[in-house]
Write a protein that binds this DNA or RNA. Structure first.
Length: 554
RNA sequence: GCGCCCAUGGCUCAGCUGGAUAGAGCGCCAGACUACGAAUCUGGAUGUCGCAAGUUCGAAUCUUGCUGGGCGCACCA
């Protein structure tokens, strides 16, 4: 609808130019918005005001010229008004709005699918936590945002690949192996001073106990370095499997798990660094290798090979992103915790040195989560092993409520997650509000069916009976669903879907309380059944993108 | 000290990338089930959009400077 209107306006501006009503101007991007005030029409366009300065004419005069030259061949426009400083306010014909219902019923779960991705390959990398412990609530938010963004991009005709980068080659893993070894010794009777750098969670003990059960006490005497290496492989494997299971129960799956170790195979990292050095992006100061990230606006250059000869995390990350591009992705999306924001200029520098546009790598920052219980902060300390895990949240509040709660704010804003509120089945918890609307509609449809009034086909009802204000609002809102999705895709903002859902459910609930769907009036009932069924479809489609259930009963 | 993000009713947040009279939810007050599901609905009060300049037809939105908060500033990941 919006796009069609934009074309009409663009054509009209062209016609005006041709007729000499307007000078030869650069046509700006046509911005069409939905006015806050319904008196201002269904859509409003500000193009006349934008052209005013270029054309050196009164904006209202320009608006008038555009209005007079609109070539509305499809007859979609009911009325155009020029208002305020030069807005063009459009009223769309009711018939046209109502025809949206047919689209929804024809397309069903495809309603809202967009073509803007043009089949481009896009990779979304998220979670990517070290397999050194279970996922906690902070990871959960990133997991949902990444998962939902991927779903969203998929509906917009992007070819999406979801990836988890396993940081299994660094110091952390070494600490993990050590932690297991210390617990191993402790369980076998030795007195151990547990180092600060080690992981203290109970899951470490379980892994140690498991090794004892399977392989006995032989590692007490083996070479420590080799044992640590072995233990960190074992522990990393076990923990990663647990992580995968937790994610799966959270509704989050990945297409690919990429191990950092892969990058080092066949000298992958050092070859890449050598090649970048040859191109002048990397220089040596005699003991260390530096990447010249300042060439792309970073504050200072960054070390890629340490004095001790070990590559940094950044070095591997350069190789990783090069690997991603080599796999043919057109666009990369990285989802990070907001505490990593200082890392962005570095990686963008790397991407550009690798010959790509900065815009080919989108970085989404997800703010950390404040966990509360009934308003009181829950202490979280990773060191001590005291933190609320994703598993615990899932067990306590359930998948749907957990996911929905993480989607209620824009991802770069702080989020308070209150366990008590999230599991409350009350009006403080919007997930039920939306699900309830869906279940309610299902219930209506069931009941109508029982009373012998099955949902009619679009052709067998008269849409012009839908004249109540709430009915018109519902229809317009549903017509704008694809536009909302388009905005979400372009801005990579998944919270827009949540806000849309709350609003749509709200209008529906209000409508429901005011008007009966199933009445003695067969024709009206037929029309309203079609209407609420369309609402059901749109609610269901949007919830599906969120990975939240759309229940038929609650 | 430098950089990034944030500041919108009592609270938690939206505000469609510069538009028209700034919106929801929670909480508070008052109401609605002999009606398709009351996990719902209806009505009411609450704002110098942190402060000050600037840009223009027009600013919560863009620029600059302050104030206050969060986070970064590793040869950690």
């Amino acid at each position: 609808m919006k796009n069609k209107l934009a074309c009409l306006i663009a054509d009209s501006v062209a016609a005006c130019t041709q007729k000499g009503l307007l000078p030869d101007v650069n046509l700006p991007q046509i911005e069409i918005e939905v006015p806050a005030n319904p008196d201002h029409g269904d859509y409003a366009c500000n193009v006349a005001m934008i052209l005013a300065s270029q054309a050196k004419q009164n904006p209202r005069k320009i608006a008038q010229a555009i209005q007079e030259n609109l070539n509305d061949t499809e007859g979609m426009i009911e009325k155009v008004q020029i208002a305020g400083p030069g807005f063009l306010n459009f009223m769309i014909k009711d018939d046209l709005w109502r025809k949206i219902l047919r689209n929804i019923l024809d397309q069903k779960e495809k309603y809202g699918c967009l073509g803007i991705g043009q089949g481009k390959k896009i990779q979304v990398e998220f979670v990517s936590a070290n397999p050194t412990g279970p996922l906690h609530i902070g990871h959960a938010r990133g997991a949902v945002v990444g998962d939902v963004l991927s779903n969203l991009l998929q509906t917009a005709n992007y070819h999406v690949s979801k990836e988890y980068y396993i940081n299994d080659a660094g110091n952390q893993m070494n600490n993990l192996g050590k932690s297991v070894l210390y617990r191993y010794r402790e369980l076998l009777g030795e007195t151990i001073e547990f180092p600060e750098s080690c992981y203290k969670g109970d899951y470490i003990k379980e892994i140690s106990a498991d090794i004892i059960e399977k392989e006995g006490r032989r590692y007490l005497t083996e070479n420590e370095e080799e044992t640590v290496r072995y233990f960190n492989t074992v522990a990393g494997g076990v923990i990663l499997e647990d992580i995968k299971k937790d994610l799966r129960d959270f509704g989050v799956t990945f297409d690919f798990y990429f191990s950092e170790k892969e990058l080092y195979k066949e000298n992958g990292v050092s070859d890449l660094l050598a090649s970048l050095q040859k191109q002048g992006f990397i220089y040596s100061d005699g003991e260390t290798l530096w990447f010249k990230t300042t060439a792309y606006g970073d504050d200072k250059d960054r070390v890629v090979i340490r004095k001790n000869g070990e590559p940094t995390y950044f070095a591997a990350d350069i190789a990783y992103h090069q690997n991603k591009y080599a796999r043919g992705f057109d666009i990369l999306v990285d989802i990070w915790g907001a505490d990593h924001h200082g890392y962005m200029p570095r990686l963008w520098a790397a991407v550009q040195a690798l010959g790509h546009d900065k815009n080919d790598l989108k970085i989404i920052l997800v703010q950390l989560v404040n966990l509360l219980r009934a308003g009181e902060p829950v202490a979280m300390s990773t060191r001590s092993g005291e933190f609320v895990t994703l598993r615990e949240v899932l067990d306590e509040v359930g998948k749907d409520a957990a996911r929905y709660n993480f989607l209620m704010r824009r991802s770069d804003s702080h989020l308070d997650f209150d366990l008590e509120v999230a599991k409350k089945q009350s009006n403080e918890n919007p997930v039920f509000y939306v699900q309830y609307a869906h279940a309610r509609i299902c219930s209506i449809l069931r009941m109508a069916q029982e009373r012998g009034m099955a949902l009619p086909a679009y052709e067998n009802m008269n849409p012009s009976l839908l004249v109540e204000p709430e009915e018109r609002t519902l229809i317009k809102m549903m017509a704008r669903y694809p536009e909302m999705l388009e905005g979400a895709v372009k801005s990579l903002e998944v919270h827009r879907i949540t806000f849309y859902l709350n609003e749509l459910a709200g209008v529906f609930h209000s409508y429901y309380n005011k008007n009966k769907v199933v009445t003695d009036d067969a024709a009206l009932t037929a029309a309203r059944l079609v209407l609420v069924d369309a609402v059901r479809v749109v609610l269901g489609n949007a919830l599906k993108i969120l990975g939240v259930n759309a229940p038929e009963k609650m």
